[in-house]
């Protein structure tokens, strides 16, 4: 039984006098206990709105959320705001991209960490301070006693993200959602943070949802990957299957267009034409159709259904004409033209 079950999640932004925008459109996915799941997409794909919807952090005004989000035996969309505050931090916690804007600049690091522990674990402030110091030490912050008394601006970017992670894991949530946690960081610091996340998740048995645009980050961290495009999941698969045999033309194109550090090929890169702006509304057909090399006329005859890939258990794709590269795409087939 999955720990997080998202069913047919749809988020619509309504603006007075303007056409409503459907940022997330019928998204369904599961996260098992202790599982690491990646949600990959470019800007505007709806990946961040999906995570905000799960955390119930979207504004109530002009936003319509339908579908269901179940965490354990709780229906998150049915909870009151008060009940939801108990869930956040205790059962599910989130790590945001930019710790400078998500940490409170006028409170010390210690105060922000102690607050969570006192609120959820019902411990005294003195006990919480001891816990906080141990947590900072665990996330790799040198001299934690001094850092507890400091303010976010006194820390470096990587250090701030470690504090965010410490706050997120303080109450040992069973689900951790990380929305682009390393995008604002340099690669060597990114490697430190990903290593820390990997260790913490393994140690605590928490489930992890990793939201990112970076397929490399997902490859090293996640067991299962969902690829989003224009508000819908277009492909879901175990990480090994997705990277070895991408089925959706979008996933395939994306993987072939990224230069790899271990690739000596210096010719022209494969490209996906157009930009994420060139979309078709899903009710009229496949949103990726205008940029797709495999598109045929029937791609514009209504929303494409999701189907399972034969011979690949758990590999689902929202495309009637999936790609089947002759060789597994491990860098050799990437410089060829599209099939």
């Amino acid at each position: 039984m999955s720990f997080l079950r998202v069913r047919d999640l749809t988020v619509t932004f309504t603006r007075p006098g303007q056409a409503p925008v459907r940022a997330v459109d019928g998204v369904t996915f599961d996260v098992g206990s202790g599982q690491s799941v990646g949600i990959v997409g470019e800007s505007g794909s709806g990946k961040s709105v999906t995570s905000l919807a799960v955390m119930r952090l979207l504004p109530a005004r002009n936003v319509q959320v339908t579908g269901s989000i179940e965490l354990g035996d709780q229906d998150l969309l049915a909870l009151s705001a008060r009940q939801m505050r108990d869930v956040r931090g205790r059962d599910v916690a989130m790590i945001f991209q930019d710790p400078m804007t998500s940490l409170n600049p006028v409170l010390t690091v210690g105060r922000q960490l102690v607050e969570v522990i006192v609120r959820h674990d019902g411990r005294s402030v003195a006990e919480a301070r001891r816990d906080a110091q141990a947590l900072l030490e665990r996330v790799g912050i040198p001299d934690p006693a001094r850092r507890l008394r400091e303010y976010p601006h006194q820390l470096s970017g990587g250090m701030r993200q470690r504090v965010m992670i410490a706050i997120a894991v303080a109450c040992r949530p069973r689900l951790l959602i990380a929305d682009e946690p390393t995008t604002a960081l340099d690669v060597t610091i990114q490697a430190q943070i990903l290593d820390l996340l990997r260790d913490l998740v393994e140690e605590s048995g928490s489930a992890l949802v990793m939201i990112t645009h970076d397929l490399g980050v997902v490859a090293g961290l996640c067991e299962r990957v969902h690829v989003m495009y224009s508000g819908r999941i277009v492909e879901s698969a175990p990480a090994t299957g997705l990277f070895a045999r991408p089925a959706h033309p979008y996933t395939d194109g994306l993987l072939r267009s990224i230069p790899r550090i271990d690739d000596e090929e210096r010719g022209m890169l494969h490209t996906i034409r157009g930009s994420v702006r060139d979309v078709v509304a899903w009710e009229h057909g496949c949103a990726f159709q205008p940029r797709c090399d495999h598109a045929v006329e029937s791609c514009l005859g209504g929303p494409p259904p999701v189907h399972d890939l034969t011979g690949a258990p758990g590999h689902r794709v929202r495309c009637p004409r999936p790609v089947h590269p002759a060789t597994p795409a491990t860098g050799t087939g990437r410089s060829e033209g599209s099939a």
Partner: peptide
Amino acid sequence: KALMGAVPVPDPAVEA
């Protein structure tokens, strides 16, 4: 060495 080793590669087999 550290810089290059830190760059993630979009291939789970390589990453592992």
